[in-house]
């Protein structure tokens, strides 16, 4: 459904700040009943990675990067009417961006993939302080905590968050992921030393992780 031509047109519109064109592309794909994960992976994720690369190579300004990010966040909202269902498994996940991490699209996509797979996902957004995260984990008692990090110099914050969470919730599964791990491979090995912590780098890997999590029962009394 998303061929190279469509992607390139969308990407150009995104960089040009052409909201209408991007909106039409996404709306049309949704009308064609595109698989949400495919939309996220091949349109939203790919374009955000490409925007990031252009920024790193100083081909575009940070303002342009922010504009593309904001537009993508708004476009993701078009998916909401079909994303959420009232049938859920008895599973909960809290998904957040790392402390001091202002990029939140990755975390939002992860939270949405949890929803598509029948989980209740609680998405906290960007830059969540560890104390707030601790409180919410205490309150909601999730089965999984997900932490996303895009900028590699925020990786130490992920380590400290995991160490802090481990003190209070030694049996809660955790997943970490995000663009930062492309440059911070050592952190991946370091984090996977912690029990019940998995590093997940793609939405496909996330789905496999969820499928193998365990065999929950449907809690739908309808």
């Amino acid at each position: 459904m998303i061929n190279e031509q469509l992607y390139q047109n969308y990407f150009k519109a995104l960089l040009d700040g052409n909201r209408e064109a991007c909106f039409e592309t996404v709306q049309s794909l949704l009308e064609q009943k595109i698989n949400i994960k495919s939309l996220y992976t091949h349109l939203f994720q790919r374009s955000m990675v490409d925007v990031g690369l252009l920024w790193e190579r100083s081909k575009i300004s940070v303002a342009k990067e922010h504009l593309a990010t904001c537009m993508t966040q708004n476009l993701m909202q078009l998916v909401y009417p079909i994303l959420f269902t009232d049938e859920h498994l008895e599973k909960k996940a809290i998904v957040t961006s790392a402390f001091n991490e202002y990029h939140q699209i990755g975390a939002q996509m992860v939270a949405d993939i949890f929803e598509i797979n029948g989980w209740h996902s609680y998405y906290l957004g960007a830059n969540t302080p560890i104390n707030d995260l601790n409180k919410l984990v205490q309150e909601l008692k999730p089965d999984v905590i997900g932490i996303s990090v895009s900028i590699s110099f925020n990786l130490p914050n992920v380590v400290s968050s995991i160490e802090e969470l481990r003190k209070h919730f030694p049996k809660t599964h955790m997943i970490v992921g995000g663009q930062a791990f492309l440059w911070g491979k050592n952190y991946r090995y370091k984090l996977e030393q912690y029990p019940l912590v998995d590093c997940i780098l793609t939405l496909d890997e996330l789905e496999t992780y969820l499928l193998n999590f365990d065999k929950p029962t449907i809690n739908e009394t309808g």
């Binding site: 708004n74 909202q77 830059n127």
Partner: peptide, 14 residues
């Protein structure tokens, strides 16, 4: 930050 919060609130609303 405001845009992020708006996105988050809109998600919660849905």
């Amino acid at each position: 930050e405001l845009n992020n919060n708006l996105g988050k609130l809109n998600r919660e609303l849905h």
